[in-house]
Design a binder for these strands. Structure first.
Lengths: 400, 400
DNA sequence: AGAGGAATTTAGATCGATCTAATTTTTCGT
DNA sequence: ACGAAAAATTAGATCGATCTAAATTCCTCT
């Protein structure tokens, strides 16, 4: 490595021969600095710095002169230099276990909403559920001097792994998934309450034999969901109907689980699914058996993915508003940065029930269950067998 | 503002009373620096710096001693300080017109793939198609010293707006949308070729009267798509069938457009839609009229959104592989940063045709059109009226 | 032993801002 | 017009790394 030449390949290859040998190298792309502004405005660097920081100490006409100079020279503030001295960077890191699911992109958008308003910027990275990659990016972000981190931990993340990545001293908000033993702030959706909500709704429609499809991995999100499911059933003194495992939590294992369940005697009349994707697989299996979801068997999901409203029958589900979760996470992190010594906080974002056709309508003479927090727009008319496209089937995000 | 106290609220409020009055304030959370490492290892700061940069100039056992010291003290590299001196930051900015559509989250994931491999980190922000917000975030990223920017410009972005945001001198790759008159690199999908591909496929199936649904805004993506559509028809000397505008490019305007079109005499036998979302609306309108998409009328879309494979009939479409577009954009930006003086480059990512049921099967005695670049997994069997769930209907991403 | 040269190490300037502790200028009461 | 207080400005150190140019150490070979 030739250290003599310094920047080497990374230096702009400008017109050659501009640098007179022995003379001062012409700084062709010289970035405008505070000193340039100061010289141009006839003041000191310190005064310019005060203007930048909107200090009230500067006289009005001096300020104007300096503002003018900055405009004239096309000044761009160098926050890195400022940060080196002042400590804070107005930068945070966003470390996601997965980027591409709609849930996490909404979450990201929520975070960006808050950051933009507070003139912060966020680094983003994807760990792809890989512990090594997670550690690497956590450290990398600290190298870049972030003021704090929002972390959606990769699966199996342990507290000591986070300590090792030096996240101990840094303001850090965990989102969506907790890490046992790591005393950080947490923001997440309330899956337990959501599951309770949909299960209550099914009970309200008259169902007494309700199964649960999905989940065998011993992960926190599952036990949270199951607890809500169980709680609703217990309240009504109903049997905790069959709980069928799904090794992978995708469409095909939902399909297989439902197929196997309905090959047995006395199947449930309603199914609560781990999530919408599993529910789609379940409904395929039912249809294949000649059972119509929403008429013969009630099916509900979780997440309200984009397909949920499009599917026939449209899927009753609940959403945990990932964008709201993102906003809360960002706000909490900024509060934590502001005051690192406050005790850890937990923010649980309540679910919103969305009633569509897949759960069928209320049994005659029975009032439907209350639809907590469900907006009118997502309340589908409870026609028994909708054949015409309902208004909400027409909604959907535009493409590219 | 009290400048005397300095950091004030942003300083950690540690155990009070630790700072003896008049004595040296104990730097309780003193971040470990090069100097600390140097002292601990008994060498100079410069040598430690060489080790950090993996210089071959350092003797092996010195290097080990220093590595040990860094491990002992829990050193975290301060890239901001390094960058201040060296110029480059190994940081880029990603400015998106919209975060939440699957297309852009895949794109983001592709960018992250490349950045992670090159140990870069990316800032992300959403402009929400707002020109003012776009300018603000572009400047903000430069303040943070990014080495370059990947920009998916907000609608109506003009070259002078980018110049005003000081993007002129900065390495900058435009993605997905071009900006006329701004001489930057560009990476984008080839919608024209994709539209040509699906149109050719329809022609190969025997269709002679083909309509286009969608688009009235004078935006670049539309004229690009239309040109591919027209090109295929012209090649076969077919009439450029009705082109129906869609003011908003969502499900409901696709629905309205198709409804109106089929209320007239002599409707087309096949429809090319602006994107998948519009196609869903179109298929709803057809179903409502008693026409079965894939049997009575062929329908094709664009994008291959997640719903496309799930819909009944499954939608024939093409994808422009946004994750690949993202990867190419990131790689191109890194090349540009490496060598800012090379001439602007254009990378057009080819489309991939995905044949499903919504376009029907080939007319008897006619070979189906070639399926360029279509993998076996996405090639659906061309059964006339599939009633059983096909294997690919079971695929789909897992939820939360 | 000493010269020559390679291999290692280092002192001190530097990047572009902030911060401290002044200094200079202005204002104002008497 | 003078001095004190208030307002405005500034010199110089500083943040934590890199970079340059020079100094030091270590070999090898006469």
């Amino acid at each position: 490595m030739d250290l003599r030449k310094g920047k080497g390949a990374s230096a702009p290859a400008r017109a050659p021969g501009e640098t007179a040998p022995g003379g001062a190298a012409l700084p062709l792309a010289h970035r405008v600095t505070l000193n340039d502004i100061a010289a141009h405005a006839g003041v000191s660097r310190a005064t310019v710095s005060l203007v930048l920081r909107k200090s009230p100490l500067v006289k009005e006409d001096t300020r104007q002169r300096i503002d003018q100079a900055m405009a004239d020279l096309g000044y761009v503030y160098n926050r890195r230099a400022a940060n080196l001295r002042s400590g804070a960077s107005r930068t945070i890191g966003l470390v996601l276990c997965e980027i591409i699911t709609p849930n996490y992109s909404q979450f990201t958008a929520g975070i960006d909403d808050v950051l933009d308003a507070e003139s912060y910027v966020g680094f983003i990275t994807n760990t792809a559920e890989d512990a090594a990659r997670q550690k690497r990016v956590l450290v990398r972000m600290q190298e870049h001097g972030v003021d704090g981190i929002v972390l959606v931990p990769a699966e199996e993340t342990r507290a000591d792994a986070l300590e090792e990545a030096h996240c101990g001293g840094l303001p850090c908000v965990l989102a969506q998934r907790r890490v046992e033993g790591f005393p950080a702030d947490y923001v997440g959706p309330d899956y337990a309450a959501g599951m309770e909500l949909v299960t209550e709704h099914l009970i309200g429609l008259g169902h007494r034999h309700i199964g649960f499809i999905g989940g065998v991995r011993r992960i926190a999100p599952l036990s949270e969901r199951l607890s809500g499911f169980r709680k609703a059933l217990r309240r009504h003194k109903l049997k905790i109907g069959p709980i069928v495992p799904c090794p992978v939590l995708d469409r095909s294992s939902g399909y297989a689980a439902a197929r196997d369940l309905f090959a047995q005697d006395n199947p449930p009349t309603a199914l609560v699914c781990y999530n919408d994707i599993v529910a789609f697989g379940v409904m395929l299996a039912l249809t294949e058996r000649g059972l119509e979801p929403g008429r013969d068997v009630a099916v509900v999901g979780c997440d309200d993915v984009a397909e949920a409203g499009l599917h026939r029958p449209a899927l009753t589900t609940f959403t945990t508003d990932p964008r709201v979760v993102g906003r809360e996470a960002a706000k909490l992190l900024l509060r934590r940065i502001e005051n690192p010594s406050r005790p850890p906080e937990q923010i649980i974002v309540p679910p919103r029930l969305i009633i569509r056709q897949s759960c069928g309508s209320a049994a005659p003479g029975r009032a439907p269950a209350p639809t907590v927090g469900c907006s009118a727009a997502t309340q589908a008319p409870k026609a028994r067998r909708p054949r015409r496209p309902s208004p909400q089937a027409l909604k959907g995000s535009a493409g590219t």
